Amino acid sequence: MTTVTSARPSAGHHEASILLVDDMEDNLVALEAVLSALQVPLVRAGSGEEAMKALLRQEFAVVLLDVLMPGMDGFETAAHIKRLDQTKDIPIIFLTGAETAYDAGYAFRGYATGAVDYLTKPFDPWVLRTKVAVFLELHRKNQQLRELLDHEQHRLGDFVRRLEAVESRLDDGSPDTAGLARDVAELVRSLREMQS
Rank of each mutant, 00 (worst) to 15 (best):
V134D: 03
R109M: 07
P122R: 04
A78T: 02
P125V: 11
H139D: 13
G179P: 05
I18H: 10
D22A: 03
S190Y: 04
L55A: 02
E147N: 10
L187C: 10
S17C: 10
V4M: 09
M52V: 14
L64S: 03
A165H: 09
R140V: 08
K82D: 09
E25V: 14
V160D: 13
I90K: 06
W126C: 02
E25F: 10
L149M: 12
V116H: 03
A30I: 15
L136I: 09
L55C: 04
R162C: 11
D73N: 15
V21R: 00
Q58Y: 06
L187I: 09
I18Y: 06
G46K: 00
Y111M: 06
E137P: 08
R109Q: 13
L187V: 07
A115L: 04
L95R: 01
E152N: 12
P70N: 01
P9R: 03
E25L: 12
R109Y: 00
Q153I: 12
E193L: 13
A7L: 08
G71T: 08
D22K: 08
V184K: 05
Y106V: 00
F75S: 01
D66C: 12
A178Q: 03
V132S: 01
T3Q: 12
G114D: 04
A79P: 00
V134Y: 02
F75V: 02
T177P: 00
D183A: 15
H14N: 04
E137S: 04
R169H: 04
R140E: 07
A185Q: 11
A133R: 09
T77F: 05
E50Y: 04
V29W: 00
E59V: 14
V21F: 08
F75M: 02
V166L: 11
V160A: 14
M72F: 04
A61N: 01
R146H: 14
L56Y: 07
Y102F: 12
A185S: 12
D176P: 10
P9H: 12
T3K: 06
H154D: 05
L170H: 02
E186M: 11
E15M: 15
E76C: 05
R182D: 12
Y102C: 07
L180K: 04
L138M: 13
F123L: 04
S47K: 06
T113M: 09
L128V: 12
A181F: 08
G46D: 14
M1C: 09
Q143F: 09
R155Y: 06
Q58N: 09
L56S: 14
D103A: 15
F108W: 07
P125H: 03
M52Q: 09
A30Y: 01
V184A: 10
A101V: 11
R109C: 02
E167V: 13
E59L: 08
H14D: 04
I90E: 01
D171Y: 08
L28Q: 07
P125R: 00
E193Q: 11
L84M: 11
K121V: 10
E186D: 15
A185V: 12
L148I: 07
L35C: 10
L35T: 08
S47N: 05
Q153N: 14
D85I: 11
K131N: 05
G48F: 05
V29H: 00
R140P: 08
G105A: 13
L19C: 11
